[in-house]
């Protein structure tokens, strides 16, 4: 098949068949992770720079493992702060990386549009968005999609309940788009101050009561609550949040017993999730971590493995 997406910036323009293709490629990579020798020579000679402007151990390590398993030469470039004011601009950093011969750049940046910007400035390298501000986190969404697909099979007609801070979540934005494009009905719940203005633009509906959202859901997706949102006064207290929106046995009592519980990590126990749920039989949280490596391998291979002049 012809692969249309030179870069992986967000999933806005991905259609269902492209998502399906990535799911299948991820399954092949997932098999590889069971082998004694996980490293394959597929991308030998390619140089990928992991350019991280925000601390992120999980995403970076996951990308790094995926790169190493595909025999990529990996460089981790940790930059700090924004490009305005002090230091080198993102544009100059980008050109420097390209001059060093990077075939691809994985970028994590606090500013919305940083990955798009980088993609416009780079002439040769492929850009993978490892998260830009509250905008997009496409690899997280794809790994979540894969995790659900692996467990449930065809996702069409399923329902996903997403609980938490949708407003500030790049994970939420990308996940809602990915799941709804696969035919999954997405319902959101959480404090109204943490909901986006127009959820229907993303393809989701808002339910005031989280119990209504999780009822009949095949997947319950819990978003991470950033403590600073409480400090900013977006909701009164973490305890109040947990009481009304945290996934504990009470909320899970409204859900189907076989519903999958997902969370992008790292989890805040006793805020958005209780330990009994996080460690319970429905929890897919560690499965998501494994899927992340396989998914990133698939994406790297799809974008860097073929002919691209």
């Amino acid at each position: 098949m012809e692969w249309r997406h030179r870069h992986v910036l967000d999933l806005d323009s991905w259609d269902r068949s492209e998502l399906q293709h990535i799911l299948e490629q991820t399954r092949s990579m997932d098999e590889l992770l069971d082998r004694p020798i996980k490293k394959v020579p597929a991308l030998r000679g390619k140089l990928v720079v992991n350019l991280f402007f925000e601390p992120s151990t999980r995403t970076r390590v996951s990308f790094e493992l995926a790169e190493k398993f595909l025999s990529v030469d990996v460089v981790n470039w940790t930059a700090s702060g924004s490009s305005t004011g002090k230091g080198e601009t993102l544009r100059d950093t980008a050109w420097t990386l390209e001059a060093m011969g990077a075939d691809a750049v994985v970028v994590r940046h606090g500013a919305v549009g940083a990955a798009d910007y980088l993609a416009k400035k780079l002439r040769r390298s492929v850009v993978f968005n490892g998260g830009d501000g509250a905008h997009a986190h496409p690899t997280q969404a794809l790994l979540d999609l894969y995790t659900a697909w692996k467990s449930l099979g065809d996702l069409h007609g399923r329902k996903l309940a997403m609980i938490g801070d949708v407003l500030h979540s790049r994970v939420a934005r990308s996940d809602i788009i990915a799941f709804s494009r696969m035919g999954v009905k997405v319902e959101l719940s959480g404090p109204p101050t943490l909901m986006p203005r127009a959820p229907e633009a993303l393809g989701a509906t808002f339910r005031k009561d989280p119990h209504d959202a999780v009822r009949d859901a095949d997947i319950i997706y819990l978003l991470r609550i950033q403590r600073e949102r409480q400090e900013e006064g977006m909701f009164p207290s973490l305890d109040e949040y947990h009481q009304f929106f945290g996934a504990d046995s009470r909320l899970m009592g409204s859900a189907r017993p076989d519903a999958l519980v997902m969370h992008p990590g790292p989890i805040n126990r006793r805020v958005e999730i209780s330990s009994e749920v996080a460690d319970g039989p429905q929890s897919m949280i560690l499965g998501q971590v494994r899927s992340g490596v396989a998914l990133r391998m698939a994406l790297l291979f799809v974008c860097l493995g073929g002919v691209r002049q």
Binding site: M1, P41, A42, L70, F301, G305, G306, V307
Partner: peptide, 17 residues
């Protein structure tokens, strides 16, 4: 994933199981 001629192929390589 073991090929040495991917850049010479014309189609997007597809990994099978």
């Amino acid at each position: 994933l073991y090929r040495d001629d991917l850049t010479l192929l014309h189609d997007q390589p597809v990994v099978h199981s």
